[in-house]
Design a protein around this nucleic acid. Structure first.
Length: 725
DNA sequence: TACGTTTAGTCG
DNA sequence: GACTAAACGTAC
């Protein structure tokens, strides 16, 4: 018997081991401990086979089998196998990212629980002898029908009763296998269900009609159109059947309110997976979900790996959100993995967004996904008016044109709140010497340091390096150092100067360090403590600001002319999301964009015709330029202290490619050419057929790994890259 | 020659 | 990725 094991090492393929005599054969999905070089590693059994391609002499024996039951179901294992091939990432590493840290380290996968049972004397004794202690008598009688776990017993009997019987030697504790508690479907009690409007009804019916098999839905609904209500009503019948629902939300969107809404509607506990959990808590949720003890699991990106005993549906909320893409190690996209998982589990998948990604929209328009639209804002809130302000040749105070200042004042005087967006943290993005023009730069990234006045520091936003603000120019020694450009800190200070009678609040990742703090600040905003809100994108996600009537985006030009072809899409999403979160029925909301290019066609289209129309136009542009989703990309990244090595490696990769239908672009320097002291190069593969790239990669990856420069540079492959920094 | 440091190669 | 043995460099 040969056991093939996937190990958490950056090497392709499994490793074969011999099963020691007398050992029970582990099934695929079980963890095992194996000798690997000079150390012991734990991995997961992938297959059991009769013979190995390796010479038998080379094979070593398994050290131990860690699980009696597989911790990964056959289906999950098959899914991860697919993912490993699709992303061209080693299976061992894929499996290890999919497992909770505790299981990776080899902790027990089964839950042990403490149970009470009668001792031998307890069994022999007649319970009538305890007549004078009715509680104790009841307890003994309860245990006569079998052991009972400590938690349940504590609910029925006081600790004193238990202790008394223990001291009498009638009962004792014993460690026992945990029995899953799966009666939550009976506890479901639907409350507070809203009457759906026509569009919501249509969407709910459409999903219900396909609830028993795989079907992918795009639920495109403007903010406030009641997407959540559709989720709630489509999952209700599934939950009642005891089927589990997995919900993915963006990192920033996982709020206690979201969780509370699901708990209130169904009256059952919702399991939550987010970055704040300890390893132990995370393992517990993983186990509960796998045993079928929880009906609803809400989590961020990595929650897609949660096992489900009886899956009913997967929902990816705000599917366009960038946080679904893992940006290091195995660069998976949780939304894309969700599609494949739903297909394998034979359950429906809902992708929800007010501003769907062009990839998803394209799938919906091409009928691969069923397209459901919610166009009306529930509760009759007015649509926010979009307008542009041409700032060509205008004098700006802290980035604000005079006309804009007047408009802001108008809204403030009406007692409303005003929100200002700028895409830069800190005080100023650079510090320049007024005498010689020298700019303070991070030597590891060759980018200017951002000035943080509050922290009294210069900080590199690319590597996190920080130093104290110098008093003199490092080049000429002159003390006249001036900030250039503007960030949130400076805007806050400036806006306070222009509007001294109103209070300003800044919300960015500096001021809102820590999740709790962000929620606190958002609370304060909605209580009306500040009238002027200054922030970065962090403000745009997941929160409503009913008192805000005016939103200003200070600079949209950088996105319109970015080297990243997705920048316009992301800007449009930001603008639409922001507009959707401001204002309410009684207040006519306004959104203003300051730009030097008021006539830009995409901007005009967005303003006049809304995101839906813009997205279709942007898709046409992508099609014309043969960009995703009309072509498929894979990106080789390489970095090294010596830029020539990174370049040379990618040249070697390029040389592996025979002329085929794959277009190669590069090697080119990354958009951020140097980072943390390393030069970064990229080689982009593009093809109009996904299979073309896939085939070439699966044939070539092992050759690429053996290239002479492959272990001299740090390199990685990014399937469906989302950014080119 | 003894020691610390970098590098190439391997892992079943 | 982590580890080891070999190669290399340096001090005495």
């Amino acid at each position: 018997m040969i056991v093939e094991v996937a190990l958490p090492v950056p090497l392709r393929g499994g490793f074969d081991y011999l099963l020691p005599e007398g050992q029970p054969t582990p099934t695929p999905g079980c963890r095992v401990r194996v000798p690997f070089g000079s150390r012991q590693l734990s991995g997961v059994v992938v297959t059991i086979k009769q013979d190995s391609e390796q010479p038998t002499a080379k094979l070593r024996q398994l050290s131990a089998v860690l699980d009696h039951q597989p911790i990964l179901s056959e289906r999950l294992l098959e899914w991860l196998n697919w993912a490993s091939r699709y992303y061209q990432h080693p299976l061992g590493d894929v499996i290890s990212t999919a497992l909770p840290a505790r299981l990776r380290k080899g902790d027990a996968a089964t839950i042990q629980q403490t149970c009470w049972q009668l001792t031998e004397t307890g069994l022999a004794q007649d319970s009538q002898s305890l007549k004078r202690a009715p509680q104790q008598q009841a307890l003994v009688e309860r245990l006569q029908s079998g052991r009972c776990d400590a938690r349940t017993l504590k609910q029925a009997f006081s600790a004193t009763v238990i202790r008394a019987l223990e001291e009498k030697g009638l009962i004792e504790t014993v460690e026992d296998e945990y029995v899953a508690d799966t009666d939550w479907p009976q506890r479901i009690h639907i409350c507070g269900q809203l009457t759906p409007n026509l569009e919501q009804s249509l969407a709910i019916t459409a999903v219900n009609n396909h609830a028993q098999g795989f079907q992918c839905f795009l639920l495109e609904g403007v903010t406030g159109s009641g997407k959540t209500e559709v989720y709630l009503q489509t999952i209700a019948p599934l939950l009642k059947q005891g089927r589990q629902i997995l919900i993915l939300v963006p990192e920033i969107g996982l709020t206690p309110q979201t969780v509370a809404r699901f708990e209130q509607r169904f009256g059952i506990e919702v399991a939550v997976l987010h970055s704040g959990l300890t390893d132990k808590e995370r393992l517990r949720v993983w186990q509960q979900a796998g045993l079928g003890e929880v009906g609803i699991i809400i989590g961020t990106r990595s929650a897609i790996f949660t096992p489900l005993a009886n899956p009913g549906m997967i929902i990816v909320d705000e599917e366009h959100d960038g946080s679904y893409k893992q940006q290091d190690g195995w660069r998976y996209h949780a939304r894309d993995l969700a599609v494949v998982r739903a297909r394998m589990e034979k359950v429906p998948l809902i992708l929800g967004s007010a501003t769907p990604s062009l990839e998803t929209l394209n799938n919906a328009l091409g009928s691969r996904y069923q397209h459901l639209s919610l166009g009306k804002r529930a509760g009759g809130a007015n649509a926010v008016k979009h307008q542009v302000l041409d700032i060509k040749g205008q004098a700006l105070d802290y980035g604000l044109a005079k006309g804009m200042q007047q408009r802001i004042r108008l809204h403030l005087q009406q007692g409303h709140q005003v929100m200002l967006f700028i895409n830069r943290r800190g005080f100023a993005p650079a510090l320049i010497c007024h005498q010689c023009g020298h700019v303070e730069e991070c030597h590891r990234c060759e980018r200017s340091f951002t000035l943080h006045r509050q922290l009294k520091k210069l900080q590199c936003h690319h590597c996190g390096d920080a130093k104290v603000v110098p008093h003199r120019c490092a080049a000429c020694g002159h003390p006249d150092l001036q900030p250039v450009g503007m960030g949130t800190e400076q805007l806050e200070q400036g806006i306070q100067r222009i509007f001294p009678d109103y209070s300003a609040m800044r919300i960015d990742s500096d001021s809102a360090r820590g999740k709790q703090k962000l929620h606190g600040l958002l609370e304060e905003i909605n209580q009306g403590k500040s009238q002027l809100l200054i922030g970065t994108q962090i403000l745009a996600k997941g929160h409503h600001f009913p008192r805000v009537s005016l939103v200003v985006i200070l600079d949209v030009d950088s996105a319109l002319f970015s080297a990243d072809y997705r920048a316009a899409e992301h800007l449009a999403q930001l603008i639409t999301q922001v507009a959707g979160r401001a204002g309410r029925a009684q207040i006519q909301g306004e959104l203003w964009l300051q730009t030097h290019n008021p006539g830009h066609p995409l901007l005009q289209d967005l303003l006049n015709n809304g995101y839906q129309h813009f997205a279709r136009l942007a898709l046409k542009e992508r099609q014309f330029a043969a960009l995703p989703p009309y072509s498929y990309q894979a990106l080789f990244r390489a970095e090294a202290v010596d830029g020539n090595l990174a370049y040379g490696f990618l040249e070697q990769v390029k040389a592996c490619l025979q002329p085929t239908d794959i277009t190669l672009i590069g090697p080119l320097p990354a958009l951020m050419e140097k980072r943390q002291g390393r030069y970064r190069m990229q080689l982009l593969l593009q093809s109009d057929k996904r299979t073309g790239i896939q085939q070439w990669l699966s044939n070539m990856m092992s050759n690429i790994e053996k290239l002479p420069l492959a272990n001299k540079v740090r390199w990685s492959l990014d399937m469906d890259p989302m950014d080119f920094t």
